[in-house]
Simulated scan of single mutants.
Amino acid sequence: MSTVSVTQIIEAPADQLWRLLVELPDRADWLSTVRAVELLTPGRLAPGTAWRETRTQPDGAAHTEEFVVVEAVPFRRLVLSSPGIGVDYRTTWTLRAVRRCGRARTAVSVRQEALPTAPYGRVLALLLGGLAARAVEGAFRRDLCDLARAARPPAAAAAAA
């Protein structure tokens, strides 16, 4: 099993960040690499909710993954599973309020565990583990930056542009 974890402090309250994470149809509006989101289950986000997300890869190619919600604890934790070839992935988003000088900040952590489901999954993890881990870490850092940017008030976002 390999694990990648990234944390960033974001200048926004956890409830605002949670809404961005769980409003699935809107993910393509704020995640810079997401081209499309296709909902596979109706209703509000809850365990069992499934969707497909198509992202642009660094080489420009499109890659589609399917996600299923395993656990959703509002404003605190979102756990997703995603099947791969010989490996299943579990991604956990954790939000923790951080108060400094009266400002609302949230420590957002995203962690992915790769769980081999077939013998060749273990072999691939050994051969490509470091390279894949660096790619996943970079993608998570970009997603956290996108989340921080989407959470900025419109005036702050315009001033930063």
Score class of each variant (00 low, 15 high):
Glu65Thr: 11
Glu53Thr: 14
Pro42Trp: 04
Arg134Asp: 10
Trp93Thr: 02
Leu126Ala: 14
Leu31Phe: 04
Ala107His: 02
Asp15Leu: 07
Gly121Ser: 04
Arg152Asn: 08
Pro154Arg: 03
Asp146Leu: 01
Arg90Ala: 05
Ala157Gln: 12
Ile85Arg: 13
Val73Lys: 09
Leu31Met: 14
Pro116Asn: 03
Asp143Ile: 01
Ser5Gln: 12
Phe140Ser: 07
Ile85Lys: 10
Asp59Ile: 01
Leu40Cys: 09
Gly138Asn: 10
Arg52Leu: 14
Arg99Ala: 15
Leu115Asp: 13
Gly48Cys: 04
Thr92Tyr: 01
Arg134Ala: 14
Glu65Val: 13
Val110Gly: 06
Arg19Lys: 11
Arg105Glu: 15
Pro153Ile: 00
Glu38Asn: 08
Ser82Trp: 07
Asp146Ser: 11
Asp29Met: 05
Ser32Val: 02
Leu21Asn: 02
Arg152Ser: 08
Ala36Ser: 15
Trp18Glu: 00
Val22Ser: 03
Glu66Ile: 06
Arg122Thr: 08
Phe75Cys: 06
Gly84Gln: 03
Gly130Thr: 10
Arg149Gly: 05
Ala114Ile: 00
Leu45Thr: 10
Arg103Thr: 13
Phe75Ala: 13
Val69Gln: 07
Ala28Asn: 03
Leu45Phe: 04
Pro74Lys: 08
Arg44Ser: 12
Ala151Lys: 00
Pro47Glu: 09
Pro83Met: 09
Val4Ala: 06
Val108Phe: 00
Leu78Gly: 04
Ala114Trp: 00
Gln112Cys: 12
Pro83Glu: 08
Pro58Tyr: 06
Asp88Lys: 12
Glu113Ile: 01
Leu24Pro: 01
Arg122Glu: 09
Ser2Leu: 07
Arg27Pro: 00
Arg19Phe: 03
Val110Thr: 13
Cys101Ile: 05
Ala46Leu: 06
Ala50Ser: 15
Gly84Thr: 04
Ala107Leu: 08
Thr54Leu: 03
Gly86Asn: 02
Ala97Val: 15
Ala61Gly: 07
Gln16Thr: 11
Leu80Gly: 03
Leu21Phe: 06
